[in-house]
C-alpha cells in the first residue's frame, strides 16, 4: 500500500508541476514525472512479495516458475509505454525549442496568441 502511495505522491508532484509551473521545460518534466508515476504503478501491480524476476532459468520447472515469478505483463506494458513517452517527450522538447525561437521565452503564460 505504501508503494502505491509512493506512486501517487510522484503523480501529484508531476501534476503540481504541470499545473503550476510557467516554464515549458518544467511542464514537460511534470509530464515525464507523471508518466513515470504511472509506470511505477503498473510495475507495482505485477509485484509479488518475495517473487522472482519472470525469467525462466535452466533447470526450473514451469510450475515453480509460475508460482514464484512476478507478472511479466505489466513490465512489457511499461516498456511499451516508455517507448511511447519517449516519442512524446522528444516531440514536446522539439516544439518547445521551436516555440522559444518564435517567442523568445519559455513562459507559457506569454505564449497565448490563441484564445477565445
Amino acid at each position: 500500500m505504501l508503494t502505491y502511495l509512493l506512486a501517487f505522491i510522484l503523480f501529484a508532484v508531476g501534476l503540481y508541476s504541470v499545473i503550476n509551473k510557467r516554464n515549458l521545460i518544467k511542464i514537460i518534466m511534470g509530464i515525464i514525472i507523471m508518466e513515470h508515476a504511472v509506470n511505477a504503478f503498473l510495475i507495482l501491480i505485477g509485484y509479488r512479495l518475495s517473487g522472482e524476476a519472470p525469467i525462466l532459468e535452466e533447470g526450473m520447472a514451469i510450475s515453480e516458475f509460475v508460482n514464484t515469478a512476478m507478472d511479466p505483463l505489466p513490465q512489457a506494458l511499461v516498456i511499451t509505454s516508455i517507448v511511447i513517452s519517449l516519442g512524446v517527450v522528444a516531440l514536446m522538447v522539439a516544439i518547445a525549442v521551436r516555440l522559444y525561437q518564435h517567442y523568445g521565452t519559455f513562459d507559457i503564460t506569454e505564449i497565448r496568441k490563441l484564445r477565445g
Binding site: V18, I108, R112, R115
Partner: peptide, 17 residues
C-alpha cells in the same frame, strides 16, 4: 465563455482535473 478561454494552459488543465 469566450473570456474564460483565455489561452492559459494551466487553466485548461485545471478544468480537466
Amino acid at each position: 465563455l469566450r473570456w474564460a478561454h483565455n489561452g492559459l494552459l494551466s487553466r485548461y488543465l485545471v478544468w480537466v482535473f
